[in-house]
Simulated assay, not measured.
Amino acid sequence: MSAPATAFSQSFFHGTRADLRPGDMIAVGYQSNFVDTQLSWVYFAGTMDAAIWGAELAAGEGPERIYVVEPTGAWSDDPNVTDKRFAGNPTLSYRSRDPLRIIGEVVNWRGHSAEQIRGMKEAIARLTEEGNNVVID
């Protein structure tokens, strides 16, 4: 007799500085975390590391937050990551035109070192100066 099959459940995360609550929706039409424009997609990841970067690099002054989210519709790989940096999508980075529902908040997480964050922000600033910090929307 074989063991019964168990369902696999994937958790998804969204890093930001926005103050949200369970049941709230992250939807298109709001200011992006990273560029000075509204995007037509919402972004999320299947890894905590990608969400941590999202929170640490998000614009604003509020506390860094990571939410557990549930996509409410179809989603696809985020071409800003998979086409530009990580073939095969090892960061499990996705985007959707449909809202993400906040399920909960991850409160005990460890961020990157100040040196790593500074290095990433400097790299982004260089890309911006060169005109290469373009979001595929």
Rank of each mutant, 00 (worst) to 15 (best):
F86N: 11
G46Q: 15
W53P: 07
N108W: 10
D36E: 14
S40E: 13
A55P: 08
V42D: 05
A18L: 11
R101Q: 07
E105D: 09
A18R: 14
D98M: 09
I66S: 13
D49F: 07
V68E: 00
R95A: 04
L92F: 02
Y94L: 00
A45W: 03
F44Y: 08
T91R: 14
L100F: 07
L20W: 05
L57S: 08
W53R: 07
M25E: 14
G23L: 04
G73D: 13
N80W: 02
P22Q: 04
S96L: 06
W41F: 12
Q31V: 08
V81Y: 03
Y67M: 01
T91I: 12
A27K: 12
F44G: 01
A50D: 14
A51Q: 05
T47A: 01
S76Y: 02
I102Q: 01
V35Q: 07
G73P: 05
A87T: 15
F44E: 05
R97S: 15
S76H: 05
I102D: 00
I103G: 05
S96G: 02
E70L: 15
Y43E: 12
F44T: 03
R95K: 08
V42Q: 00
D98N: 12
Y94I: 00
G62N: 10
W53D: 04
V69C: 08
V42L: 03
W75A: 15
D19T: 11
I103F: 00
G46W: 12
G29Q: 12
F44N: 07
S32E: 13
P63G: 15
T37G: 13
L100D: 08
G62R: 07
P71M: 13
R97P: 10
S32H: 12
N80I: 02
K84A: 02
G62D: 08
S40M: 10
I52W: 08
F86S: 12
A58Y: 01
L100T: 03
T82V: 10
N108D: 15
E70C: 12
I26C: 06
N33Y: 06
T37P: 02
A55I: 04
V69I: 06
A27G: 06
T91M: 14
D77Y: 11
E64I: 00
S40Q: 12
G62Y: 08
V69H: 02
S40A: 14
A58V: 06
D77W: 09
P99D: 06
P79Y: 01
G73I: 11
D49R: 15
L57P: 01
P99F: 00
R85K: 12
I103P: 09
T47P: 03
A55G: 11
F44R: 00
F34D: 01
G54H: 03
E105H: 08
G23C: 09
P71F: 05
E64V: 00
A59G: 13
Y43R: 06
D49V: 10
S93E: 03
R21N: 14
Y94K: 05
E64Y: 02
L92H: 10
A55M: 05
W53M: 07
E56D: 15
T37Y: 09
D36T: 08
V68I: 10
